[in-house]
Amino acid sequence: MKKRQTGLIVLLSVLGVLTIFPFYLTIVNSLKHNLQIIESIWFFDLPLHFDNYVRAGREIWRGMLNSVFYTTAILAVTMVISSFAGYAFARFSFPGKTVCYFGIIMFLMIPGFVTLIPQFMLVKRMGILGTRAGLILPVIATSSVMPVMFFRTHFEGIPGELFEAAKVEGAGDVKIFTNIVVPLSKAMFGTVAIMVGLRAWNNYIWPLVSVSDRKLMPVILELKFISENAKEGMGPVLAGYVIASIPMILLFALATKPFIQGITAGAVKA
């Protein structure tokens, strides 16, 4: 038995090393200049060139700020509207419920790029193509679909007596939502926030086709402006990759526990 557990841990470690290795390589080489990279890519090498981060930061600082702004806006609105909808489906049996629900989750099976072209034309006609609003609003629509499903499933699991009791006390629906449902669903909100936040931060195609003004670009697009040169080589480019990854790693670090618990406890119902 003991032997088997040891073998297991060895296997887990091998998979772990393979999983992490590309990220390790990126970090190691983000601290080198060209000659150091050419010499060997496998290990850290002195001196550590933090100036790569300075140069990368100079190119993408605005993109970072933009991305933080876009992601926050998308996240905030998506969380509110999708939890509202999830609540409506979970607590009420109103005429048209099935149709409404299908009308939302049907977008899970419509590939996003199918609506890309009309969305482009629509946003152009609305006069917001290449503006902050044009970058945020359509993404909210797309990213609300999946959370509605998650929130509904989760809210349905809250015992009905809680709601009845609150109703007897004279609490309105909004009050019940803010004072009972939200506090009881913190882990679920955390889980959904990570998934929506990741998608918003990662969003590449929509900004690619809709923004041409560099001042408005999210960091994911701005990465291409960090160029290689003879002295520093890939160093600053890799440093840019690391910088662009930090905010989501921070968000994740804040909510790792509720996220892992949320997902493993069946947030995603099969």
Partner: peptide, 11 residues
């Protein structure tokens, strides 16, 4: 194992 999940896919 889930660390790569939070690195932007484009990166």
């Amino acid at each position: 194992y889930i660390v790569p999940m939070v690195v932007p896919s484009l990166v």
